[in-house]
Design a protein around this nucleic acid. Structure first.
Length: 296
DNA sequence: TCAGACCCTCACAG
DNA sequence: ACTGTGAGGGTCT
């Protein structure tokens, strides 16, 4: 894993290569888990915490460029989850045809490990929105209310995702002006609950799945689907299983072609059938369904 | 369980 | 070009 890190004297930017195989960077960053990445000639530019980062898929793995030399690279490895052995995860999937097709179609797709607050806030903004629209809202929100970040020379300006305290002090009108519509009061109240400590996001990490989910469901604008997105993409609960319209469509079509299953039955199915990495299976199914049209 | 409402934007008809 | 319509990674009442 450790590689050499080069400090570029000209701009003080810093480059590093993470060695990893079976990692499809494009599929992962563009799979709707995170909303801050955009493609920029051959690479992906985004923000992780309070750092501007550019990532490029290379032969040995993933090359990373930062604005200044960090003390270590653990934060990046953690975010990208480069230590996960994908083979071992995929091997736990049930050996059915849909999942075989899905893993074949998008092998290398990974789950990220994001910051809980940014993930929670972003998915509150996601309801009944398309991914491009969610990206636009998160971008506007960050630019207006997030901290300005250090960026290597020649790159566009960038801002961190705003803190709970910052968003909590905004008016509903200011939030609505970021094009988030009826989600504005949800985000505002959630930011206030986090800022005041009414709900402790850090503490959720140590809870059992059901209790963690119950905590997240306390936030306005957070139902089962969004709660499970945060449980899976930020906290890394391996069996969290967000069911959105795409996954629902897939589950019905692939596993219940005859009749429409009751909600409870479907829930039971997703909790038992897909195994210890059900969340990963969900991500593969989602990606597979979402890209189905372009595959004939 | 079952609608309907909710902001806003974009694709697609006509 | 211009207006109408429908639906989009849900949640709440």
């Amino acid at each position: 894993m450790p590689e050499l890190a080069l400090a570029s004297p000209a701009s003080h930017s810093c480059q590093r290569v993470l060695t990893v195989r079976d990692y499809d960077l494009a599929a992962t960053l563009d799979s709707g888990q995170a909303f801050r990445w955009r493609q920029e000639h051959g690479g992906w530019v985004g923000v992780i915490g309070s750092r501007w980062v550019k990532l490029v898929q290379t032969g040995p793995g993933i090359a990373a460029l930062t604005a200044s030399a960090p003390n270590d690279w653990h934060w990046l490895e953690h975010y990208l989850q480069t230590h996960i052995e994908l083979d071992e995860v995929l091997a736990t999937f049930p050996a059915d045809e849909p999942l075989r097709q899905a893993t074949l179609a998008c092998r290398g797709l990974r789950l990220l490990r994001q910051d809980p607050w940014e993930c929670l806030a972003s998915f509150i903004l996601s309801s009944t929105k398309q991914i491009v629209q969610i990206r636009a809202i998160v971008s506007t929100l960050s630019q207006r209310y997030g901290d300005h970040l250090e960026v290597p020379a020649g790159h566009a300006q960038m801002w961190a995702f705003p803190s709970p305290a910052r968003l909590a002090e905004l008016t509903e009108a200011e939030l609505r002006d970021c094009k988030m519509g009826f989600r504005a009061p949800y985000l505002r109240e959630t930011a206030q609950m986090v800022a005041t400590g009414a709900v402790n996001l850090a503490q959720i990490a140590g809870l059992p799945l059901a209790a963690a989910r119950a905590e997240l469901l306390k936030f306005p604008g957070v139902g089962r689907k969004i709660a499970d997105c945060v449980l899976l993409f930020a906290y890394g609960f391996p069996t969290a299983f967000p069911v959105d319209v795409w996954v629902m469509r897939g589950l019905r079509q692939l596993y219940f072609p005859r009749r429409r299953p009751a909600r409870q039955r479907l829930e039971r199915f997703t909790e038992t059938y897909f195994g210890p990495h059900a969340g990963y299976a969900q991500q593969y199914l989602f990606h597979y369904m979402r890209t189905a049209e372009s595959r004939v």
